[in-house]
Amino acid sequence: MKQQNKIIVLVLLMGTIIALFMLYNTGPNLDYVIPRRAVRLATILLVGVSVAYSSLIFQTITNNKILTPAIMGYESVFILFQTVIVFIYGDKTFQVITHQDNFFYAVLLMMAFSFLMYILIFGKSKQNIYHLLLLGLVLGALFQTFGQFLQIVIDPNEFSVIQGFMFVSFNKINTDLLLIAGATLLGALLFGQRYLKYLDVIALGREHAVNLGLNYNKLVKIYMLLISLLVSVSTALVGPVTFLGILVTNLTYELFQTRKHHYMVWLCSGIACVALLLGQFLVEHIFNFSTTVSIVVNFVGGLYFMYLMLKTRKAI
């Protein structure tokens, strides 16, 4: 198929699935159902774009197609934070701390966490992005262990509150938060727009990027800042979706031959939104909420990751 036709198919697919998502099996209470679905739709689009955008940039600067920013431990920080809150306040959690406060603290913590890592790695004279990954990984594992420890000793009823945070859900979204997250995303995208062209060069690797006159270290810091912002906001909004990033970026590479990030980010975002909408639709109408969209996405994304690992013939 030609590039152009593929893009048309993607757009049509997206239109269809949005229509299906909004209108399928609405029942008589249109006034009630439609606005709620619209909020869910907006959230999904927001998360899809955030995840696609951050994963794509992350893979370009790490020169690696099988990583997502999730590997840096943001999700562990988020889960640990939620676990600690529930551990302290129990089932009174939401009387003590509002959703808004929770959201802000979670974003702040995740951002602080990423800054800490950047200082630890980039503060030294010899910068190495791989060490940043390993550091994030270990800290993530550490926080995860802490979180798991608290989750074991916690009361099973209170655990269900944590479980609500552990799995992505688009069902309990607060519209104020959605607006804030949307504004953040828009700001990040506008800011990032003028840096996109450098990513095409950074994809060639550090040495070529420096040779072609890029201030590589500064750019990497800017991108990492953008990534941490996007990941923090989307994680704090709906929870972690670990494998979505790998799934959608690699589908983009496979389906579209372009290497221009100007186009890639939008194609990838489109695919991410379609994947999430499809997942959510399945969860709502096929699984009847017996599972969550993040579990479905992680399941499919994980299998796709394995497929990639075993079929790839190139160096990664």
Binding site: L134, L137, I246, F299
Partner: peptide, 24 residues
């Protein structure tokens, strides 16, 4: 089977692999 460009990627892939199993 996979040629890794940096030895750091092997544990990273291993951890991703662990995450998949955990997801299942």
């Amino acid at each position: 089977r996979v040629r890794f460009r940096s030895s750091v990627f092997i544990p990273l892939v291993g951890i991703m692999f662990g995450n998949i199993l955990a997801a299942v």
